[in-house]
Nucleic acid binder design. Sequence first.
DNA 1: TGAAATTGACAATTTACTTGTCAATAATGA
DNA 2: TCATTATTGACAAGTAAATTGTCAATTTCA
Lengths: 151, 151
Amino acid sequence: MTRSADPDQLYALITEIRKAFGELRTFSDGQIMDLGMTAAMRAVLEDLDKHGAQTVPDIARRKGRTRQHIQQLADALVEAGFAEFHDNPAHRRSRLLAQTKRGREVFSEIRRRERESLGRAAERLDGGRIQATTDLLRELRKDLAGQTDRD
Amino acid sequence: MTRSADPDQLYALITEIRKAFGELRTFSDGQIMDLGMTAAMRAVLEDLDKHGAQTVPDIARRKGRTRQHIQQLADALVEAGFAEFHDNPAHRRSRLLAQTKRGREVFSEIRRRERESLGRAAERLDGGRIQATTDLLRELRKDLAGQTDRD
DNA sequence: TGAAATTGACAATTTACTTGTCAATAATGA
DNA sequence: TCATTATTGACAAGTAAATTGTCAATTTCA
């Protein structure tokens, strides 16, 4: 039989999510610093990698951030040579942000590093438990977001 | 039998941790904004609540942040009336940061709100799964931190 | 077609957190 | 005990993530 969660358990979970994210941030920053990329830029590049070229407002909506913020990151990615704007047949004003060759290369280097380091850090963790954890976090996140189902 | 985690599963997990943290941050900011407290101040107050009065460098070490940063947050907490410095019998220069009555009150109000809202958001989640998720995240975090076991 | 919504460009601000410096104090070990 | 080393407080400046606000150009839609 399933027990429903008591508030203290949930509280312990969100505390742990915060701590885990903190460690993850420290870990990830170390992986990308030398590539001339910040964590937020990396997140946009990941989005382009997963969903293809998009306009800045599209990315902002998907990620639940302001378009102004995404615009800053997009400009930084272009400046660094990791992305470029293409004309958008569907909209004269709002151009499509796309990865450059260099952007794709750098992103796969980042993923390679993350896989390698994570594999080392978590080699003792069971795959089934990892899957279960991912699933539960996704459910919790969607509940928190009010079933918005952003990503 | 236990399967070992493959890198893609781990990658999916850290992606989900990032997203879950993002939602959580949005959620939590909404809970404390009106109390004149920021998320980082809240984290220090939580530390005082859990571990009692401590010096600024002690908190910084436990949280893995710089003492200068924690000093800023401590000053803000004092300024807002949520904490105060007490003389430290063990160290003339380095005083102990302690919650004030108001700090304790505000922190329990925050916890009350969080319990209530979280309970509503996650009422369908099973307690056993929550526990398993918390446990795995803790293990992963400690692996990432290199077994430092900070908190 | 005309009003309402979206977009780009630019500016300013907030929050979280860092690095760096210097003088005062504490801890340590020869 | 005393010189050296480490820690601390105070202050300054900077970076990164993200926000709010404004205005004119462009789209969308009723």
